[in-house]
């Protein structure tokens, strides 16, 4: 995997809006963003209602994913180009999720909605209609998904990368600074975790930094390239962004996203927690 395979530029996207076999998909938590104007031809996925099981705290199962993509008019042969707001957080989450269910031809629009809007490129409220397909998903590829016991076992053995802000890492706050404070029972981080906020991997306009800058960033933070890595945040979407950087852009081989993240870990009874900034 490399930058050319995993990312497309806004210029490329603009030239390929009507290309056969290319489907643009906007992924946001706030679907009013899509409804207020989206990239021409793009379909919408709602991070919460489409991709999360509505009862159990987990993904939708394979059959539901097949049904969802079929209804959206996405076929197995299509190249899916994902984009969204929040610096592509949820688009990166969806990217990881598409990979998990075995869709190989998936790419992220570099800079997402933000760069597209700042560039003044076209957005439309025209409804997108695509013909229903019969999408076939594969069994989930759990080689890119970490679960809680595996994360606990990784303490002292693997790279743990906490991609939240320094104040969330140290335990000063439990949720990002633009949200009311809520969620996990206890603040702090997993002992031994590195703190490399996701935002350090992105430029101001939401595009990813260069491979050289990214290599220096994680190397400088102490990420040992010879070890496996688990990334986590609060609910698994910002860590998808970092998973994308480490696994898809930098090509590290064994990188998992712990989507249970701090809301799960920080609510478990008896697990080790560390407070304070990195020494």
């Amino acid at each position: 995997m490399s930058r050319q395979d995993a990312l497309v530029t806004a210029d490329w996207a603009e030239e390929n809006l009507e290309a056969p076999g290319v489907v643009f998909v906007e992924v946001d938590e706030d679907t009013s963003a899509y409804d207020g104007g989206h990239i021409p031809g793009a379909v919408k996925l709602d991070w919460k209602s489409d991709l999360q099981d509505q009862v159990v705290r987990d993904f939708v199962d394979r059959a539901s994913f097949e049904k969802l993509l079929s209804e959206k008019g996405i076929s197995n042969d299509d190249t899916v180009v994902l984009y969204g707001g929040n610096n592509n957080w949820f688009a990166a989450y969806a990217y990881w999720y598409f990979k998990l269910y075995g869709h190989d031809k998936v790419q992220l629009l570099d800079g997402g909605r933000k760069k597209w809007e700042l560039d003044g490129r076209t957005l439309t409220t025209d409804e997108t209609s695509r013909q229903q397909t019969s999408y076939q998903a594969k069994e989930p590829d759990n080689s890119i998904r970490a679960f809680r016991q595996e994360t606990i076992d990784a303490i002292g053995n693997k790279n743990l990368v906490d991609v939240r802000s320094p104040d969330e890492f140290s335990g000063k706050i439990i949720a990002p600074a633009h949200l009311p404070q809520e969620q996990a029972q206890r603040p702090g981080h997993i002992p031994g975790a590195l703190n490399v906020p996701w935002s350090k991997a992105a430029n101001e306009d939401g595009t990813f930094r260069s491979d050289d800058e990214l290599g220096t960033l994680y190397g400088g933070a102490g990420l040992d390239g010879s070890k496996s890595t688990i990334a986590y945040c609060r609910i698994g979407e910002r860590s998808s962004h970092t998973w994308f950087v480490l696994h898809e852009l930098l090509g590290h081989s064994d990188v998992k996203n712990y989507d249970g993240s701090w809301t799960e870990y920080g609510s478990l009874v008896g697990v080790p927690i560390e407070l304070g900034a990195k020494s």
Partner: peptide
């Protein structure tokens, strides 16, 4: 260092939940 980002409303309003301290608020627009 970046801490959070929101999009301003139609009336230009924004809001952050932060901690006491010195902050810079930077806005990018067309």
């Amino acid at each position: 260092e970046f801490t959070a980002e929101v999009v301003s409303s139609a009336s230009g309003d924004f809001r952050f939940f932060a901690a006491p301290g010195s902050w810079t608020v930077r806005a990018l627009s067309r």
